[in-house]
Nucleic acid binder design. Structure first.
Lengths: 228, 228
DNA sequence: TTTTGTGAAAGAGTTCACAGCC
DNA sequence: GGCTGTGAACTCTTTCACAAAA
């Protein structure tokens, strides 16, 4: 009988991995992809750490979550590490994403997402402007937000990006959640009040820009924190 | 001559306020501005906390940094609180911002920043595309990035927003820093390697979107963290 | 010797709990 | 009663430091 197992509950007793760690794993994976294209077969934690702007210890600790072993003289095998991280992060299937808001920012996000990360696809664009809906944009239907319920269900959308003006964000978010969306990436500069079941991540460009401006006026090298 | 200075320096011996707190103060200020427009004269910490999506204790603790007193029966006076936060956050003068990259995202950011926050103004747009430079865009000169040194100096630019493709971001950032920019808001999905004197904040849309997608697949209500 | 994997310590950040006040 | 301000406790995150491995 195996003694080691002090804290093993059942067999799927994973303690939840914090958001910070998930974000860094996603970053490591992207860097590994770039590295793979250069033909590198192995990496040491300190090399990857430089590229990700973290310490080697933190990188190794993050990697403990994905059950991937490195070798003391070769470091980590690039493809193996990619596979381990993918096994941890990836959806069993492609995830459908909705874009809410077809203004300046919405269109930039759409362009930004096109052609990348095949596991995540924008499959619908919602707006309230009659001039912007009921047509196809780059192979993607643009529809009025009142059709959210049907479209979200039919296309199996689980994630929405909110890129509408601040005043419209709360109700747009509520519509999406009511339609069945499980998590949101909110670009509107307001905090949304939603059920605790829904995962919300805010990208508040206004706050972040002011923060950067604030620290531009400070004596350099105070310890500061990074964004997710 | 004074040698040690273990703790207290002179009389302005403020310990540096963490970035997280600064970001929340900026958020509180924005909410107070909205509140002020509704005609509210006073707020309790629990009311502001709901709007900012933080706990009342955290809000009060953040406010300790700006030396503003509330009253147990009225809460905080809106205008006083605004003034205290402004005194802490605001630059002595308007800060000039550069936008680097006039692609989709760059244009969206430009539109986004126009007409808001008077204390922060985009005064120049840089790009490498000859078709996009040497003209005025909404009263703002668009110039080739090789003119950075002159333009940054002449316009007193201290902050740059990097909105160029990932492959171009490192060199664009280096050019801006060499030209005299003190802090950067980086939208390119790469980690920049720059002198530690420079304050860098990353907004990594790709990572954040993948993170949101990841948590869309999880059982709800695991403790998670917010964005800056 | 250099590097990995990780327990233990340190450090940050947040929440608790309550005194003092209205 | 309900609120603010804040020391103390707690929790989360990062770094230290070192055994084991190649």
């Amino acid at each position: 009988m195996t003694i080691g197992r002090p804290a093993a509950r059942g067999n799927s007793a994973r303690k939840p991995v914090p958001g910070r760690v998930v974000a860094r794993l996603i970053l490591y994976r992207r860097i590994l992809g770039d590295l793979d294209l250069t033909g590198a077969r192995h990496v040491f934690s300190h090399q990857l750490a430089v590229l990700a702007d973290v310490t080697p210890e933190q990188l190794r600790r993050d990697l403990m979550n994905v059950r991937c072993e490195g070798s003391p003289n070769r470091g980590y095998e690039v493809t193996t590490l990619q596979a381990c991280i993918a096994a941890f992060l990836d959806p069993p299937t492609v995830q459908a994403v909705a874009l809410v808001g077809a203004g300046n920012l919405g269109r930039a996000l759409f362009a930004y997402c096109s052609g990348r990360r095949p596991a995540l696809r924008i499959v619908a664009v919602f707006d309230v402007d009659p001039a912007k809906v009921d047509r196809m944009v780059s192979g993607c239907p643009s529809v009025h937000i009142h059709q959210a319920r049907t479209v979200v269900r039919d296309l199996g959308i689980s994630v929405a990006m909110i890129a509408v003006p601040p005043a419209a964000a709360q109700s747009a978010a509520e519509l999406m959640v009511a339609a069945g969306v499980r998590s949101l990436l909110n670009f509107a500069d307001v905090r949304l009040r939603l059920s605790a079941e829904v995962y919300v991540e805010n990208i508040d460009i206004g706050v972040t820009l002011e923060k950067v401006a604030f620290f531009a006026r400070r004596a350099p090298l105070s310890k500061d924190v990074r964004s997710p």
